[in-house]
Design a protein around this nucleic acid. Structure first.
Length: 267
DNA sequence: ATGGTGGCACCGCCA
C-alpha cells in the first residue's frame, strides 16, 4: 500500500492553520512533520488535526521559537524528545509508526539556522549549529533490528552544488559553507542514510524547498535553496515511488518561506 | 549593493 510522508517548516502553525489544512486535504499524506510551530503545547490546535482525519498527534513545542509536531493517520509508540546541545530547545521529536506489518521510526528535526557569520569563534549561533550537526552524526538509519527509519525536517543545510541557485555565490553563506555541507554528507554516509529527494531527482537538476521572504519576486528571481530533507534507511529506498516538492505552496495566501516536501513509498 | 520581509512577544530576538 502507498505511504506518504510530508515535511514542512510552517513558521507558526496557528497563523498558517488554513494552509496546513489545505495541504492535508489536497495531498492526503499519511504523516505530516511540522517544524517552527512557534506554539506552546497547551495552545497547539489539536482539534483541527483530529477533525482533518489525523487522530494521532505528537507535539514538542515552546513559546515563541522553534517547535516540532508530527501528525499521523496511523498509531505510533515510543515518543522521544532529544535535547540536542542541552539548550532546552524544542527541535526534535521521534516516534515509531506501525504501518501494516512494518515499523518505521520517524525523526522530525529542526536544525538551528546558524546566524549570518559563518565563523564559530565569533558567532555562537553558528557554533551551536555545528555542534548540533556533530550530534546528528550519532543518528543511525539502522538503529533497531526490524525497524525501518525515516529522518525528515528543516535541516538548514543545502549539501549539494545544485541544492542552491548559485554554488559559487553561496560558498560563504550560512547553509552552504563547506564545513556544513561536508558535515551533512558525513552524517548521511556514516549514518547509512539515503537522501530520497536526490535518489529520485539526481543532480544536476536544481532542487529548492525554500525561498527568502526578502526577495521582491521569489518566483522570478528563483534564488532558492534545498534546506528541507527526507532521508530513509536503505531497506525503504527500493520502495520509493514518488517525491514531490510543492513549489506552488510558496505562492499560497500568507505563505511560509518553506514549501512542503513529500515522499511516497509502496510498503 | 550589505538591504530586504515575516512571526512572536514585547519594544528585541530569531529566521
Amino acid at each position: 500500500m502507498p505511504f506518504t510522508i510530508a515535511t514542512w517548516n510552517i513558521n507558526s502553525v496557528r497563523l498558517r492553520l488554513p494552509i496546513v489544512q489545505r495541504l492535508l486535504a489536497e495531498e492526503a499524506p499519511d504523516v505530516l512533520c511540522l517544524q517552527e510551530t512557534k506554539c506552546p503545547n497547551e495552545l497547539f490546535p489539536l482539534e483541527a488535526f483530529h477533525a482533518a482525519g489525523f487522530p494521532h498527534v505528537a507535539i514538542h513545542g515552546q513559546k515563541g521559537y522553534h517547535g516540532v509536531a508530527t501528525i499521523s493517520r496511523h498509531p505510533f509508540e515510543r515518543e522521544e524528545r532529544r535535547d540536542f546541545c542541552q539548550m532546552g530547545d524544542a527541535r526534535h521529536l521521534a516516534l515509531t509508526l506501525r504501518v501494516g506489518e512494518r515499523r518505521i521510526r520517524v525523526h522530525n528535526l529542526y536544525v538551528p539556522a546558524g546566524g549570518d557569520e559563518p565563523d564559530p569563534l565569533v558567532n555562537p549561533k553558528f557554533d551551536h549549529k555545528l555542534r548540533f550537526l556533530a550530534e546528528m552524526r550519532r543518528m543511525r538509519a539502522q538503529e533497531e533490528a526490524g525497524v525501518s527509519s525515516i529522518l525528515v525536517g528543516d535541516l538548514n543545510v543545502a549539501p549539494l552544488e545544485h541544492d542552491v541557485w548559485s554554488h559559487k555565490q553561496l560558498l560563504k553563506i550560512v547553509s552552504h559553507t563547506p564545513v556544513e555541507t561536508e558535515e551533512m554528507l558525513a552524517i548521511i554516509r556514516d549514518g547509512g542514510w539515503r537522501d530520497l529527494l536526490r535518489r529520485h531527482i539526481p543532480e544536476p537538476a536544481k532542487l529548492y524547498t525554500w525561498w527568502s521572504y526578502r526577495a521582491k519576486d521569489w518566483d522570478a528571481a528563483d534564488k532558492g535553496r534545498r534546506l528541507d530533507h527526507i532521508w530513509s534507511s536503505p531497506d525503504l529506498e527500493p520502495h520509493l515511488s514518488d517525491v514531490r516538492i510543492l513549489r506552488a505552496a510558496r505562492g499560497w495566501t500568507q505563505p511560509s518561506d518553506h514549501v512542503p516536501v513529500l515522499a511516497t513509498l509502496d510498503v
